[in-house]
């Protein structure tokens, strides 16, 4: 099932900001005025280096943090502020998360089956023990694990296997949006591909949307329909994967693109990465704003900067 852009967005993030107060004089603006939308069945890739605020956005959306400002709408319901029972139920079932660290995201004292079944237990989604077991076994098979893994514990598994358990845990709730927070970055490249394939299969089958958070662009390009580039808490550039890759405008995006390694020794040996240093770049994120370039392609900068970048890329 492909992304449905005619439908209402399933998630709408408007002017979200998240400030952490360090002391009375100093506040860190981890996320500053970020807006984007995700449509049903779509994969939105959020890319940025460590400290860019990408993880904070993911956790703010699913309400592990309380965002300082902005409005987030999920399936038409406002999920900021105090949640009523209904909204909370909606948020805790239809939105799920896959975590970064396969070693830390599974409770070491719980059996795999009980980890996957936790959502069922919390929301009383089964009538009999047999029904629960059947449901969990089905999910285990779906993520490529064996039914006999049900009674095992997390430390008996490899990183890739654990990440599949994490996916199964999210999947069992039939979510319509899954936030994947750097869910492949701790894995070997060969296993990353396995997990990404699995996520794609699941999307095809269930039509769930993904917010795919990552720090490098190589897998993001492969899985995402649209991409947002984040740096120091600001959304610098967003657009379809094609728009970003064929015509990157912001210097930071360009440097990210140039950093993608290629498994082609002849090319890779000649490649040099483009450097980007905010302090010496002469760009002030405080001054510019997100400006439409064409189609759905936006870039963050002052009018002058945007003009310069677009003319550069056209020439």
């Amino acid at each position: 099932m492909a992304a449905n852009y005619n439908a209402e967005p399933i998630l709408k993030v408007e002017h979200m900001s998240q400030h952490f107060k360090i002391n009375s004089a100093f506040t860190v603006k981890a996320v500053d005025d970020v807006s984007f939308e995700i449509y049903p069945g779509e994969t939105y890739g959020l890319v940025g280096e460590s400290g860019s605020g990408k993880t904070t956005i993911g956790r703010g959306i699913i309400r592990l943090y309380d965002p300082t400002g902005g409005k987030i709408t999920f399936k038409g319901a406002d999920i900021t502020g105090r949640l009523n029972r209904e909204t909370s139920q909606l948020l805790r079932t239809k939105m799920q998360m896959i975590f970064q660290d396969p070693m830390a995201s599974l409770n070491p004292r719980k059996k795999i089956g009980d980890i996957i079944g936790e959502g069922l237990d919390i929301h009383h989604m089964y009538r009999t023990k047999e029904e629960r077991k059947e449901h969990i076994d089905g999910i285990l098979k779906k993520v490529g694990l064996a039914v006999e893994h049900y009674d095992r514990y997390p430390y008996q598994f490899s990183g890739g296997q654990r990440q599949r358990v994490g996916i199964a845990r999210a999947l069992i709730m039939n979510p319509e949006l899954i936030i994947a927070d750097e869910c492949i970055s701790a894995l070997d490249v060969s296993i990353q591909a396995q997990v990404v394939n699995l996520m794609k299969d699941i999307q095809e089958e269930t039509g769930t949307a993904y917010l795919f958070i990552a720090h490098d662009l190589s897998m993001v390009k492969y899985i995402s329909d649209r991409i947002g580039v984040l740096h120091l808490g600001k959304m610098l550039e967003t657009g379809t994967t094609d728009e970003i890759f064929s015509r990157p405008l912001h210097p930071y995006t360009k440097s990210l693109l140039s950093a993608i390694p290629s498994p082609n020794p002849r090319v890779e040996k000649a490649r040099t990465a483009v450097e980007y240093d905010y302090e010496t770049s002469g760009i002030d994120y405080g001054k510019g704003s997100l400006t439409l370039v064409e189609g759905t392609h936006y870039v963050h900068g002052t009018a002058e900067e945007v003009r310069k970048w677009t003319s550069e890329s056209a020439g």
Partner: peptide, 23 residues
């Protein structure tokens, strides 16, 4: 992260303290 995971699944405080963390 596994406690966060329980939260995103909607686990209440008592469940988190006594079922997820205590063991």
């Amino acid at each position: 992260e596994y406690i966060m995971a329980s939260r995103t699944l909607g686990a209440g405080n008592w469940r988190i303290i006594f079922i997820d963390i205590l063991p």
